[in-house]
Simulated scan of single mutants.
Amino acid sequence: MIDMDADTFEALVGEVFDALPDNMVDGLVNVAIMIEDLPEDGSLDLLGLYHGVALTDRDQYGFGELPDMISIYRDPLLALAEDVNHLREQIHVTLVHEIAHFYGIDDDELHALGWA
């Protein structure tokens, strides 16, 4: 486990997100990325969560709808990380995983692609 304050963690998530390929993030329309300390159940098992309807399951997306949300959970990621480089890798994997869910890629396909 490493120790990192909330502002530094948020900046690191921003750096990792900014380094993602354009073709992965250009389609993220009306998606908020939120950093939370813990998931709702308080566990350290969940690193991130996509809240929304995958693009493959939408009929249409209209004006005035609330954004989908990707939650990144700080405490579980910090508990898992051995050092800052490992934390950066885990944030990357978590962002890719949750963004994939936005695009309709399920866990089985993520594993088959080697992304999870």
Rank of each mutant, 00 (worst) to 15 (best):
V29D: 09
V29T: 05
N30W: 05
V31Y: 03
V31G: 01
V31C: 03
A32Q: 04
I33T: 00
I33E: 01
M34V: 07
I35R: 05
I35V: 08
I35L: 02
I35Q: 02
E36V: 01
D37C: 06
L38K: 08
L38S: 02
P39I: 00
P39C: 01
E40L: 11
E40K: 02
E40T: 04
E40C: 00
E40Q: 07
D41C: 08
D41M: 12
G42T: 12
S43D: 08
S43A: 12
S43C: 12
L44A: 12
L44Y: 15
D45T: 12
D45K: 15
D45I: 13
D45M: 14
D45N: 14
D45V: 12
D45R: 15
L46Y: 04
L46Q: 06
L46R: 14
G48F: 01
G48S: 05
L49G: 00
L49V: 04
L49Y: 06
Y50A: 04
H51E: 06
H51M: 04
V53R: 09
V53G: 01
V53E: 01
A54T: 12
A54L: 08
A54F: 14
A54Y: 15
A54M: 12
L55S: 13
L55I: 15
L55F: 14
D57T: 06
D57G: 06
R58Q: 09
R58D: 03
D59Q: 13
D59R: 09
D59M: 07
Q60H: 14
Q60E: 02
Y61H: 05
Y61W: 15
G62I: 08
G62A: 14
G62Q: 14
F63R: 11
F63M: 09
F63H: 07
G64W: 05
G64F: 11
E65G: 08
E65P: 00
L66M: 10
L66N: 11
P67I: 09
